[in-house]
Write a protein that binds this DNA or RNA. Structure first.
Lengths: 227, 227
DNA sequence: GGCTGATCTTTTGCATACGATTTGAAACGT
DNA sequence: ACGTTTCAAATCGTATGCAAAAGATCAGCC
């Protein structure tokens, strides 16, 4: 499928490749556990293996792929314990993001967040799971962006993996989504009110609730399998 | 200074190089702001530029170096706002680490932590700043290790940069170190008592106190400069 | 005298090439 | 029939080479 590539900037090729690979993983084109053959991918992008390999090292550090030394890289997989660990980190880091956003978000950014909540409300009402997942990711990334905390840069990939890549495996209910939107609204209100403590508190509670529900869901499924 | 390299495992050269570069940054051999010339470093290690470049991408993702596209990589620098942002993230992530450590640390790990506290006590009594900095880093890394949370992997570089690399610039007082050791002891006690909530709380308080003191110190220094 | 522009050097970024390791499977022996 | 061993194809990891861009230097001009 030799695809020619459209460069959106004059910067480094490896950055573009890394971003393209990320999007493919997020989109499920490369499913968890899939092995990524360097020569094949390099051919698809019409590049050499050198910048591709550098991009893969970046993704490896992001935790999106794992490398078995002699064999190659595979898209990361997650069992329940690892997923819950990831949520524990997200709970803490999303809290920081919300806190800093409450302190630093510009008026346009807050306005954009409010608008996103409105759109999420519509998505939930007509219940489009794929659209909700996408909207959810965009929302959380908007808060991270508004936080202007460069040390939160590793949160992006973590967010995508937890909310997007591994989401299909764990059915997302309409009721939970509706509750989530309410929680999102509380976060935005705290940010708009410039209340960092409250923003951190509700943001943490939001992720915690998501993780708790996920845990219950999977434990339930496990007992079903045993029966 | 063409140095031959000792392989501790059959793993990839780039991993060894990345670790060696990290240690050089941590040790101040490459000071903040220093430019890292690829050909020179490759020659020093006796390798080609290919694995070195991949190692540099890893360090870039860790936030240890920054890359100006056409020019090369420089060791990361931090002003006060960036440093405080880093501490905000550390406060959250160290909290998670302590929580998980309280849930999962093995008896030997706890014993080792207790031992480290004793050693820190001695170091503070005879007040050896360099030794304390080193001991402090080892202590926090031990907790991260005991937490067994793979999603915390990015905390290592952040810890080093905040506590070790940028430490010389901000004088560390004996009194603060003494207080810090007491706080460390509280963290270990909460972990030993298998009390995750308490462990997270005191761990967060510890980092928060450090950051607060840092902020006060630097603001004071700033007003001194104006005067 | 300071500023601007052109040239020249250095260094990066990507492509290509080669050796080492792993993987998969077929052949062999038990 | 099953496990073991050997061998070949494929793929990774590293080295080398080349073109392009960034930075420095110096001459010319305002």
């Amino acid at each position: 499928m030799t695809q020619t590539f459209e460069w959106r900037s004059q910067s480094r090729l490896l950055d573009e490749i890394a971003q393209a690979l990320r999007e493919r993983i997020y989109a499920g084109i490369y499913a968890p556990g899939a092995t990524l053959r360097q020569e094949r991918i390099a051919a698809e992008f019409g590049i050499s293996r050198t910048p591709l390999r550098e991009a893969l090292r970046v993704l490896e550090r992001d935790g999106l792929v794992v490398n078995k030394p002699g064999s190659g890289v595979r898209v990361a997989t997650a069992d329940l314990p690892k997923l819950l660990d990831a949520y524990a980190v997200r709970e803490a880091m999303d809290g920081v993001a919300a806190r800093n956003a409450a302190e630093r978000a510009t008026a346009p950014e807050i306005k954009a967040l409010v608008k996103q909540i409105e759109q999420q409300q519509k998505v939930v009402e007509r219940w489009d799971p794929a659209a909700y997942t996408q909207s959810n990711v965009v929302f959380h990334e908007a808060i991270v962006s508004a936080s202007r905390n460069t040390s939160l840069s590793s949160l992006g990939p973590l967010l995508r993996m937890t909310s997007q890549v591994f989401a299909p495996a764990f059915s997302l209910s309409s009721e939970r989504a509706s509750t989530a939107v309410t929680e999102h609204r509380m976060i935005v209100e705290a940010i708009a009110a410039r209340n960092p403590d409250e923003a951190e508190k509700v943001a943490r509670a939001h992720i915690h609730a998501t993780a708790t529900r996920l845990k219950a869901l999977l434990e339930e499924r496990e007992t079903d399998n045993e029966a």
